[in-house]
Amino acid sequence: MTPIDFVISLALISVAAGVLGSLIGLGGGVVIVPVLTLLYHVDIRLAIGASIVSVIATSSGAATAYVRERMTNLRAGMFLEIATTTGAVSGAYLTTLLPTRFLFVFFGLVLGYSSFATFRRRHTDKPLTVSKDRIANYFNLHGSYYDPAEQREIPYKVVGTKPGLSLMYVAGLVSALLGIGSGALKVPAMDSAMHLPMKVSSATSNFMIGVTAAASAGVYFVRGQIDPIIAAPVAIGVLVGATFGARVLGRVTSKTVRLVFVIVLVVISIEMLQKGIFP
């Protein structure tokens, strides 16, 4: 495979990664890392660097369409970023202290459970109309969005800010420790613990993963993990895909988004368990 074949084929795969990532709020890393390591036999360090680029590309590409459609809850996202960025920075200092294999097994199980919890909520996905959560009320984290699939404005209330913040701290920590997209923990935290509607959880996670990834991007750049010949097709492909995926999110139902998310989460969970048990 010559360099031009590599660049063109990787850009096309990245378009698909961008569509999927922006639809479910996970970032393109879920697709990019296995594709680069298994299909192209690229070094894992460079694959993780490319994954960070793809996460930011998903986030920014999708956001240009999302914010206009007002699905992202910017207030809740910014509020929860306190915990995620703090987690990401503290995780950078814990990397050498914790056994990675144990972490992979542990979070493989955690994600397995959260895929189950997300799946179980598929019939009880009614937005809340009251909230007694004092933090959510104080910062007015509640919101409403226009759902083109249901053709109506859907108001919702937010609860569970404390468990939400704790989970977001863990999400930031894990993404720094294991180099996995923290969206896998962010979406269940917003969906199950804070009762944000599924589409809002996905769109808000999309906003947040970009900010979290930017917090560790400096480290990856200095360590020389961002290789331009890999990053260029990934960035352009994912940006194109994410812009498209963001428009798809409006049209599909919340249930579809939920089911796609659960399937991807199961795959990630198996992948992590495998890395922990048979490294």
């Binding site: 680029v53 930011i56 970009g210 900010v211 930017a214 940006l239």
Partner: peptide, 12 residues
């Protein structure tokens, strides 16, 4: 790529 990395920071 660095300009892309800056976009979320600029957004904040």
């Amino acid at each position: 790529v660095l300009i892309l990395i800056l976009t979320p920071i600029l957004r904040v």
